[in-house]
Design a protein around this nucleic acid. Structure first.
Lengths: 121, 121
DNA sequence: GCCGTTGTCAACCGATTGGTTGAATACATG
DNA sequence: CATGTATTCAACCAATCGGTTGACAACGGC
């Protein structure tokens, strides 16, 4: 659907540290400080990462005094999965159709040349 | 599985032009020149985009004289879908468990504070 | 064997990215 | 109210990214 949203989601998950954060948030919610511990980077860097994830809608933060516990939003994953599945299926079906076409061509060689010409439209 | 592969896949799909190319390749294979036509960019730019998609394993190119027809590789989408589904499910299950916990807590208020303390490990 | 077509390589450019450090904000507690 | 804690904001930096143009390689057709 929303192209820029999809862009933000994919870009967010294109970073290993952010994917790791997602992995940990799938297990349980966690504060920014907690999330920062395992990595050899500053809290500010992790804070930025979380902002990217939040802008993509993958993560939400609630208020708990000074803390901002992060929560993984599962629904957004559905959006992504749907996008991916659409093209995976299309490509798969086409591949299967091609098998049929190849079978048909086995006794009909000249169709091969014709098909290649037609493809360069 | 392979983290750097996943990084390349997500990064490849984080660009709208490249997602569009994927869309078109889902319908049928196409040469670099054919793919370049609809966009207001040079063939070289599209060639680079295809290189990124190829490095991510999303696209393969075969040789046909000067032409390099591009083909969408459906299997790679499975890898992505699997990764996504893992965390989507985990987060979903946790959310459902939380519902149970909240139901349990309804007559047992002190458990709430205990849970919040325990989370800050 | 030369010409046109198709695509890649190379160098360059401005914008974005992931990181840093330092200051500022928001809050709970003594 | 002063202090410590948790987080974000701001400015900066090097590296990467998406784009450009120009040169070059590979191939088919006259």
């Amino acid at each position: 659907m929303d192209d820029s949203k999809l862009t933000r989601i994919f870009a967010a998950l294109a970073d290993p540290t952010r994917r790791d954060i997602v992995t940990r948030l799938a297990v349980s919610d966690a504060t920014v400080g907690e999330l920062a511990e395992p990595y050899g980077v500053s809290i500010q860097a992790v804070s930025k990462h979380i902002k990217v994830l939040a802008d993509a809608g993958l993560v939400t933060q609630r208020k708990d005094a000074q803390r901002r516990p992060c929560h993984l939003e599962a629904e957004v994953f559905d959006l992504m999965t749907k996008w991916i599945e659409r093209y995976r299926q299309q490509a798969q079906e086409r591949y299967e159709r091609l098998d049929d076409v190849l079978a048909e061509m086995r006794g009909d060689e000249h169709l091969n040349r014709q098909r290649q010409q037609g493809a360069a439209s």
